[in-house]
């Protein structure tokens, strides 16, 4: 995919001439900026990158990336991307979706893209609200959410995107936050480097319809206590004074304070390759726990697109390049003189 001789790209190379039409203050601006910052470092020529999106605020994304792009229909981006990636494994294919697009109308396509391990990079902007349709609750909105469509509060239990990805056995699962520029760049880079479907949940603030949904997580005063920043091979420590951590009590994680006989050695050490830890992390939520961000899980297994293309290569090796004339004459044929 990368070519050594390609000229060095800059952020500007990935900016289009289109006006960005998100609301001022939208978290999407930061995500776009981080993607445009990281992409020149990937070493992938611009023409070999494709962004495919569905419908929703997030799905406007391809218009602002100076790569190939396809703004499709609601929820279907993973299906379209699968067809593209399978038939064009030489391309780097990104899917941009949201909590409504990817988890509600398009939930089916998302889980199947993940379980097939299609080599797609899927960025799911989770703002826990329907923004484009002006403020209905979404599948990730908290129970009791009061919106225009639920004036008495929603009666739906929310869906956990990370757990869904784990259930689909996704080979790369991560979470980051729109305003955490540096962290987000790292995660985007990791997703880009992963061979297989990479699922990234980006917690994103909708300042018009769900402002402050993640305030506790992003507030300067509180974030050290509410974020658990995951690092592979490192004990799970958080807190303003770096004095709190996650310990396993049997099979149950618990928050402990270091000192009084509790040391770092007692803490759970993050292992990106351990699905059990990924499961425990995916269920950690406030108020009892900090919110884990970072890479929860990485696993290497053959990608769907590679397997599909291997079948074609193997068929060619076995039967030779297809000969249509011969094929038409296959089976019981007879000749009338």
């Amino acid at each position: 995919m990368s070519t050594a001789s390609a000229p060095k790209l800059t952020r500007k190379d990935f900016v289009t001439d289109q006006d960005v039409r998100w609301c001022p203050g939208c978290g999407d601006y930061s995500i776009l900026a981080q993607v445009q910052k990281v992409f020149p470092e990937l070493g992938v020529p611009r023409e070999n990158i494709v962004f495919i999106s569905g419908i929703g605020c997030s799905s406007r994304f391809p218009y602002y990336m100076n790569t190939y792009g396809f703004h499709s229909i609601h929820g279907r981006a993973p299906a379209i991307a699968t067809g593209l990636k399978v038939s064009r494994p030489d391309l780097m294919v990104w899917v941009v979706t949201g909590d409504g697009d990817g988890l509600s109308i398009g939930g089916n396509h998302l889980i199947h893209a993940l379980r097939r391990n299609v080599d797609l990079k899927i960025l799911l902007f989770n703002n826990r609200i329907y923004g484009l349709t002006k403020g209905q609750y979404s599948p990730t909105s908290e129970l009791g959410k009061i919106t225009k469509s639920t004036p008495l509060g929603s009666a739906d239990h929310p869906l956990n995107p990370l757990l869904l990805a784990l259930g689909a056995d996704a080979t790369f699962i991560a979470r980051t936050i729109d305003v955490e520029a540096k962290h987000q760049q790292d995660i985007i880079r990791r997703a880009a480097e992963h061979k297989g479907s990479a699922f990234v949940e980006i917690l994103q603030n909708c300042n018009v319809y769900n402002d402050g949904a993640f305030a506790a997580l992003t507030d300067r005063e509180t974030k050290a206590d509410t974020q658990l920043v995951l690092e592979h091979g490192k004990p799970m420590i958080f807190g303003k004074n770096r004095d709190r951590g996650i310990r396993l009590n049997g099979l149950t994680p618990e928050v402990v304070t270091l000192g009084n006989g509790v040391s770092t050695a007692d803490l759970l050490v993050h292992d990106e390759h351990d699905p059990v830890i990924a499961f425990l992390l995916s269920r950690m939520a406030p108020p009892e726990f900090p919110t884990p961000i970072g890479v929860l899980r990485v696993e290497q297994k053959p990608t769907f697109d590679a397997l599909m293309n291997r079948q074609i290569e193997e068929a060619k090796a076995k039967f030779g390049e297809g000969d249509l004339e011969k094929l038409l004459h296959r089976g019981d044929v007879w000749t009338v003189p």
């Binding site: 499709s72 279907r76 379209i80 067809g83």
Partner: peptide
């Protein structure tokens, strides 16, 4: 959808 993606 996949067929359309392939056509793209």
């Amino acid at each position: 959808g996949s067929a359309l993606g392939a056509a793209f």
